[in-house]
Amino acid sequence: MPENIMNNFMLSLELMGKGLLGIFAVVAIIAAIIYLLGKIPSKKEQDTKE
């Protein structure tokens, strides 16, 4: 296989690793923040409890 094709293929694998890691990292952070925000009771809920 020509060298430039092999080089590009190896770069594409690196892109796959970094790309998927980046996407998962961002969505995991966002999901975690949303999960934690959901734990904060709203003012309306607090008024209702009182």
């Binding site: 796959m16 998927l20 996407i23 969505v27 995991a28 966002i30 999901a31 949303i34």
Partner: peptide, 16 residues
């Protein structure tokens, strides 16, 4: 929020 992960996984086809 855990459904976020499935959106991420379904982008595999781009890189493949």
């Amino acid at each position: 929020p855990k459904l976020f992960l499935f959106g991420a996984a379904a982008q595999f086809g781009i890189f493949f």
